[in-house]
């Protein structure tokens, strides 16, 4: 599952159109897993769903099944995965944006494509549904269906995608494993001193799950420290969590517990000015990087300087579900 991101107008949607062979003046060559871009069946989901308005939801889905190349008997499973079982008899114009997106997704999957290209497919979904759908997409990807997903939400991409491409002005600027690319993007934003970018910074915490499946609060180990999260995305026993900078506090109480639940001992690796009086702290423990936003009063009171060992604290709630 590959994430594609970048500023508006970078060419993300155009790239999808090219890959779907809808851009007549484009010539596409390439291969991804078993899929050859020149001939395979593409499942494309546009940002605004584009359900056929003269057909009911069920008919839209059955049309996709009619033209599917392999008649896999998984209708119910897909409909359930995309959470649209209760929508089958509805007409598209009566659906909300989020419902229409789910149906469009189901339609694309039921057409049994060789590859799934998704343009902001979850932008209109509420958070809980969004994570359920993204988890379902990831499970499809793990079962051999390549998924390319365009999103502005770096947190989603960092948690669910195996790798991320960052597109700018039609060119791939960063590419690689999700966490590495996200870090590069953050660094670029810090370097460019983008205040808005700093406000949306987040770190990615991941590690093996430690407790049994049925407990809602998951304990996992990251850099040999035990952390907790409420219903996080768990994949192959590995927990992934995006923690926004605004949700992290810093103190020097390295041993005492607080109500925040999670304590992560790390080093203050950098302190960058976002705007006068406001800072972005980069907190590092081996390969794991967290961010925290601070003001200069907190820095004075804690007498913080780069290289200090501090406790980063954040709540147990999974931030990618908030």
């Amino acid at each position: 599952m590959i994430g594609l991101t970048g500023p508006s107008g970078a060419g993300k949607s155009t790239l999808l159109r090219c890959l779907a062979r809808l851009q007549h003046d484009a010539s596409v060559q390439g291969q991804w897993q078993h899929y050859t871009f020149r001939q395979g069946r593409v499942g494309l989901v546009f940002q605004d769903s584009l359900l056929f308005p003269h057909l009911s939801v069920g008919q839209n889905l059955l049309l996709a099944v009619d033209y599917a190349r392999s008649q896999a008997h998984w209708f119910d499973e897909v409909v359930l995965g995309c959470q649209c079982s209760h929508l089958l008899s509805r007409m598209p114009h009566s659906l909300s944006g989020g419902e229409a997106q789910r149906v469009a997704l189901a339609r694309a999957i039921l057409n049994s494509p060789d590859i799934l290209l998704l343009d902001e497919p979850v932008s209109a979904l509420d958070n809980q549904t969004k994570h359920a759908i993204l988890g379902y997409l990831r499970s499809l990807a793990d079962n051999g269906l390549p998924v390319l997903i365009v999103s502005h939400d770096l947190q989603d991409l960092s948690v669910y995608c195996t790798s991320v491409l960052y597109l700018e002005a039609g060119k791939v600027v960063h590419e690689g494993p999700a966490h590495a690319v996200i870090r590069q993007i953050h660094q670029q934003q810090i370097n460019n001193n983008i205040a808005n970018g700093a406000a949306t910074q987040f770190g990615i915490i991941s590690g093996p799950k430690q407790n049994p499946d049925n407990e809602p609060v998951v304990a996992f180990s990251c850099e040999q420290q035990t952390l907790y999260a409420d219903k996080p995305f768990v994949h192959n026993g590995l927990v992934s969590l995006a923690v926004p900078a605004s949700a992290v506090t810093i103190d020097r109480q390295l041993t005492e517990p607080t109500s925040m639940g999670n304590r992560f001992i790390c080093q203050l690796a950098a302190l960058d000015v976002i705007v006068p009086g406001a800072y972005l702290a980069t907190l590092q423990c081996n390969d794991t990087v967290l961010y925290a936003t601070l003001n200069d009063i907190a820095i004075k009171q804690l007498q913080l300087s780069v290289g200090d060992t501090v406790a980063a604290r954040f709540a147990v709630e999974a931030f990618n579900r908030l």
Binding site: L22, V42, F46, L50, F52, Y67, A68, R69, N111
Partner: peptide
């Protein structure tokens, strides 16, 4: 007519006639 409906139909494997 929004031609993107036809784009969707095309990616779904529908022939020109269909």
């Amino acid at each position: 007519l929004d031609y993107r409906y036809l784009d969707v139909a095309k990616t779904m494997g529908m022939s020109r006639y269909s």
